[in-house]
Computed example of a mutant assay.
Amino acid sequence: MAGPVAQPLIIAAGEQRMIHVFDLDMRPEQARFLREPGALAQVLGIDEIDLDHVEIFPVSDLEDLGLVGYLRDGCGIPKEQLASDAQKLAAIEGYVLLLRSRALRGEATRLTPASQIRHIGDYSEVGADWASLPSNPDDAPESAKPYSASRPSPREARSRARRIGATIFVIVMALILLVVLMLAT
Rank of each mutant, 00 (worst) to 15 (best):
I10K: 09
I11L: 11
A13G: 08
E15M: 06
R17H: 15
I19S: 06
I19F: 09
H20I: 06
D23G: 09
D23T: 03
M26F: 10
R27L: 15
R27C: 14
P28S: 06
E29A: 03
E29N: 02
Q30R: 05
Q30T: 05
R32V: 06
R32P: 08
E36I: 02
P37N: 04
V43T: 04
G45T: 11
I46S: 06
D47W: 12
D50F: 09
D52G: 05
P58C: 03
V59I: 09
D61N: 06
E63N: 04
E63L: 06
L71M: 07
P78E: 15
P78W: 12
P78K: 04
K79G: 15
K79V: 15
Q81Y: 15
L82R: 02
S84L: 03
D85G: 01
K88G: 00
K88F: 10
I92K: 02
E93N: 07
G94T: 00
V96Q: 04
L98W: 05
L99D: 04
S101G: 09
L104Q: 07
E107M: 02
L111G: 01
Q116G: 12
Q116P: 15
I120F: 10
E125A: 09
W130A: 09
S132K: 00
L133K: 00
P134A: 10
N136Y: 11
S143F: 12
A144W: 12
A144V: 00
A144R: 00
K145H: 11
S148Y: 13
R151G: 14
S153D: 10
P154A: 07
R155G: 13
R155W: 15
R155S: 13
A157C: 08
R158V: 13
G165M: 07
T167W: 13
T167M: 08
V172L: 10
V179H: 11
V179G: 13
L183D: 04
A184H: 13
T185M: 14
